[in-house]
Structure formats: structure tokens, C-alpha cells
Deep mutational scan, measured.
Amino acid sequence: KELVLALYDYQEKSPREVTMKKGDILTLLNSTNKDWWKVEVNGRQGAVPAAYVKKL
């Protein structure tokens, strides 16, 4: 499985998103959308802005 690093804090704004903190390591589930990537963090799945994460 592919991992990404959170470059910034992000507070979810809808139920389809997830909150992450700078430095979090997230499991990347889907990166086909260039703006929003689906990730899993702390057992929750949701979208985060692609510009806020970097593939490891």
C-alpha cells in the first residue's frame, strides 16, 4: 500500500473528508482525482486536498 505525508494541518469540512495533522502518515487509497485524494487515517476514510500531502 502507498503512504503519503501530511504537509499541513487540514480540518474536515464535510463528512466525506478527514482531518489530518502536519506530519501524519496516511494510507493512500485513491489518487485519480488531481485535486482530492482518498486516504485512510486513524481508521477513517475520506478525502484530503492533494496539494496538502506528498507521496512517500
Results as ranks from 00 to 15, higher is better:
1 K>S: 11
1 K>I: 13
1 K>Q: 13
1 K>L: 13
1 K>R: 14
1 K>W: 12
1 K>C: 15
1 K>H: 13
2 E>D: 11
2 E>R: 12
2 E>C: 15
2 E>I: 14
3 L>N: 06
3 L>R: 10
3 L>S: 08
3 L>V: 09
3 L>W: 14
4 V>W: 08
4 V>Y: 09
4 V>D: 00
4 V>E: 01
5 L>T: 08
5 L>D: 00
6 A>E: 01
6 A>S: 06
6 A>W: 02
6 A>N: 01
6 A>L: 04
6 A>Y: 01
6 A>C: 13
6 A>P: 00
6 A>T: 03
7 L>W: 04
7 L>E: 04
7 L>M: 10
7 L>Y: 03
7 L>H: 02
8 Y>K: 13
8 Y>N: 09
8 Y>G: 06
8 Y>P: 01
8 Y>H: 11
9 D>M: 03
9 D>P: 06
9 D>Q: 02
9 D>V: 02
9 D>F: 04
9 D>R: 02
9 D>E: 05
9 D>N: 08
10 Y>G: 01
10 Y>H: 03
10 Y>P: 00
10 Y>M: 00
10 Y>N: 01
10 Y>C: 00
11 Q>C: 12
11 Q>V: 14
11 Q>I: 14
11 Q>D: 14
11 Q>A: 12
11 Q>F: 14
11 Q>Y: 14
11 Q>G: 08
11 Q>M: 13
12 E>S: 15
12 E>D: 05
12 E>Q: 13
12 E>P: 14
12 E>T: 09
12 E>Y: 05
13 K>W: 05
13 K>Q: 14
13 K>D: 07
13 K>M: 12
13 K>V: 09
13 K>G: 08
13 K>P: 05
14 S>G: 12
14 S>V: 04
14 S>C: 10
14 S>K: 07
14 S>E: 08
14 S>W: 06
14 S>T: 12
15 P>F: 10
15 P>S: 12
15 P>A: 12
15 P>I: 11
15 P>Q: 10
16 R>S: 14
16 R>W: 15
16 R>L: 15
16 R>N: 15
17 E>G: 14
17 E>W: 04
17 E>R: 05
17 E>Q: 10
17 E>K: 05
18 V>K: 01
18 V>L: 13
18 V>H: 03
18 V>R: 03
18 V>P: 01
18 V>N: 04
18 V>S: 01
19 T>D: 04
19 T>K: 03
19 T>G: 09
19 T>I: 04
19 T>R: 06
19 T>M: 04
19 T>V: 04
20 M>V: 11
20 M>F: 13
20 M>R: 01
20 M>Y: 01
20 M>G: 00
20 M>Q: 01
20 M>T: 03
20 M>A: 02
21 K>D: 03
21 K>E: 06
21 K>Q: 10
21 K>M: 09
21 K>I: 08
22 K>P: 03
22 K>M: 08
22 K>I: 06
22 K>W: 03
22 K>N: 03
22 K>Q: 10
22 K>T: 07
22 K>S: 08
22 K>L: 05
23 G>F: 05
23 G>A: 02
23 G>W: 05
23 G>P: 01
23 G>D: 06
23 G>V: 00
23 G>R: 01
23 G>K: 01
23 G>I: 02
23 G>N: 06
23 G>H: 04
24 D>Q: 13
24 D>C: 07
24 D>G: 03
24 D>E: 11
24 D>W: 11
25 I>V: 11
25 I>E: 03
25 I>Q: 04
25 I>W: 05
25 I>L: 09
25 I>Y: 06
25 I>N: 02
25 I>K: 05
25 I>R: 05
26 L>N: 01
26 L>H: 03
26 L>F: 07
26 L>W: 02
26 L>R: 00
26 L>C: 10
26 L>V: 07
27 T>R: 11
27 T>K: 11
27 T>Q: 10
27 T>W: 13
27 T>D: 06
27 T>P: 12
28 L>V: 07
28 L>P: 00
28 L>N: 00
28 L>K: 00
28 L>T: 00
28 L>S: 00
28 L>D: 01
28 L>G: 01
29 L>V: 12
29 L>F: 05
29 L>R: 04
29 L>W: 05
29 L>K: 05
29 L>Y: 04
29 L>H: 06
29 L>N: 02
30 N>I: 08
30 N>G: 08
30 N>H: 08
30 N>Q: 10
31 S>Y: 09
31 S>V: 08
31 S>L: 05
32 T>F: 10
32 T>W: 09
32 T>H: 12
32 T>Y: 10
32 T>M: 11
32 T>D: 15
33 N>W: 06
33 N>H: 12
33 N>D: 14
33 N>E: 11
33 N>G: 12
34 K>T: 11
34 K>C: 12
34 K>H: 12
34 K>A: 13
34 K>W: 07
34 K>E: 12
34 K>Y: 08
34 K>R: 11
35 D>E: 12
35 D>K: 12
35 D>H: 14
35 D>W: 15
35 D>I: 13
35 D>L: 13
35 D>P: 02
36 W>I: 05
36 W>T: 04
36 W>S: 03
36 W>C: 07
36 W>A: 03
37 W>T: 03
37 W>M: 04
37 W>S: 03
37 W>E: 02
37 W>N: 01
38 K>S: 13
38 K>H: 15
38 K>V: 15
38 K>L: 15
38 K>I: 15
39 V>P: 00
39 V>W: 00
39 V>N: 00
39 V>I: 07
39 V>A: 02
39 V>E: 00
40 E>Y: 06
40 E>F: 05
40 E>A: 08
40 E>W: 06
40 E>N: 04
40 E>M: 08
40 E>S: 09
41 V>F: 14
41 V>H: 14
41 V>Y: 11
41 V>R: 12
42 N>I: 04
42 N>F: 07
42 N>H: 11
42 N>Y: 08
42 N>S: 09
42 N>V: 05
42 N>T: 05
42 N>R: 11
42 N>E: 10
42 N>Q: 10
42 N>A: 11
43 G>T: 05
43 G>E: 06
43 G>Q: 06
43 G>C: 05
43 G>Y: 03
43 G>I: 02
43 G>R: 04
44 R>F: 07
44 R>A: 07
44 R>Y: 06
44 R>C: 07
44 R>G: 04
45 Q>C: 12
45 Q>M: 11
45 Q>F: 09
45 Q>N: 07
45 Q>H: 08
45 Q>L: 09
45 Q>W: 07
45 Q>E: 12
46 G>T: 04
46 G>E: 04
46 G>Q: 03
46 G>L: 11
46 G>M: 11
46 G>R: 04
46 G>W: 06
47 A>K: 14
47 A>D: 15
47 A>V: 15
47 A>S: 14
47 A>N: 15
47 A>H: 15
48 V>Q: 00
48 V>M: 01
48 V>P: 01
48 V>L: 03
48 V>K: 01
49 P>R: 04
49 P>W: 03
49 P>A: 02
49 P>H: 03
50 A>V: 06
50 A>H: 03
50 A>N: 03
50 A>M: 04
50 A>C: 08
50 A>S: 13
50 A>Q: 05
51 A>G: 13
51 A>S: 14
51 A>L: 10
51 A>Y: 11
51 A>R: 14
51 A>F: 09
52 Y>I: 10
52 Y>L: 15
52 Y>V: 09
52 Y>W: 07
52 Y>A: 14
52 Y>C: 15
52 Y>N: 08
52 Y>E: 05
53 V>E: 03
53 V>C: 14
53 V>R: 00
53 V>F: 05
53 V>D: 03
54 K>Q: 14
54 K>S: 11
54 K>Y: 09
54 K>G: 09
54 K>E: 14
54 K>A: 12
54 K>D: 09
55 K>H: 10
55 K>N: 07
55 K>Q: 10
55 K>G: 06
55 K>V: 13
55 K>S: 09
55 K>W: 09
56 L>K: 03
56 L>C: 14
56 L>H: 06
56 L>A: 05
56 L>E: 04
56 L>T: 06
